[in-house]
């Protein structure tokens, strides 16, 4: 029984609550770094790391932190973990760190992390919080990878820098420009809506401010 609930916490991040498309959270990195698959995956992994650490810590200290200062405490914690992730990327994968630029530090204000800390980890013990973080984090990484895949195929005719479309293919420059990110994201949200309507007859969507 306990295993079932844990599995449910994990699974819901993959489809039912998949972050960018269903919850419309964390839209800035989703749009900004997905001009190739590898950037999307790197960004997703960095977010997953921060989300996991933040959820564990918030869950562990949930009974100690007074209610009035909890948001401030969470933000400082998240900022610390983001600093760690940023320095790790800069030391181990300099080209990726360069490509992601200021979007790694911007994980601090990624609503997904604060929303999970506030909405889940502060009410639940450590184990469910870990599963929640893994589910949402992997869901987020997959979403970014899909966005990156579509934009890389049409924008460069390649996947992971390996050319798959021949010389006959004229790259769609718009796909790697900012406008392409908005279009791809818009159509993917519509696709998820379509699938939900087919599945359950209704669409679920909330916007983070």
């Amino acid at each position: 029984m306990a295993n079932n609930t844990l599995w449910h916490e994990f699974k819901k991040g993959l489809w039912q609550d998949i972050p960018p498309f269903r919850l419309v959270l964390g839209t800035c990195p989703t749009l900004a770094v997905t001009n190739s698959v590898i950037n999307g995956i790197a960004m997703g992994m960095a977010t997953l790391f921060v989300l996991l650490c933040a959820n564990i810590t918030v869950s562990a200290i949930r009974k100690i932190v007074p209610g009035q200062v909890r948001i401030a405490a969470y933000v400082v914690l998240i900022a610390l973990y983001v600093t760690v992730a940023d320095m790790f990327l800069a030391a181990m994968f300099p080209p990726i760190s360069k490509a992601l630029g200021p979007y790694v530090p911007l994980i601090v204000v990624n609503c997904i992390i604060l929303a999970r800390a506030e909405g889940f980890a502060q009410k639940n013990p450590i184990m469910p919080s870990v599963m929640d973080a893994l589910g949402i984090g992997i869901g987020f990484t997959l979403s970014l990878a899909v966005m990156g895949l579509i934009r890389e195929i049409f924008g460069f005719g390649s996947i992971l820098d390996i050319k798959i479309l021949g010389d006959w293919f004229e790259p769609w420059i718009v796909m790697i420009l900012p406008a392409g990110a908005f279009f791809v994201f818009g159509f993917l949200v519509a696709l998820v809506n379509y699938l939900s309507i087919k599945q359950k007859g209704k669409k679920t969507e909330t916007v983070c401010h």
């Binding site: 406008a179 994201f185 818009g186 949200v189 809506n193 669409k203 969507e205």
Partner: peptide
């Protein structure tokens, strides 16, 4: 219907 809400807003932003 499937484009209503966030989806159409993103396409306009594009």
């Amino acid at each position: 219907e499937v484009f209503q809400g966030v989806s159409i807003t993103l396409i306009i932003a594009g």
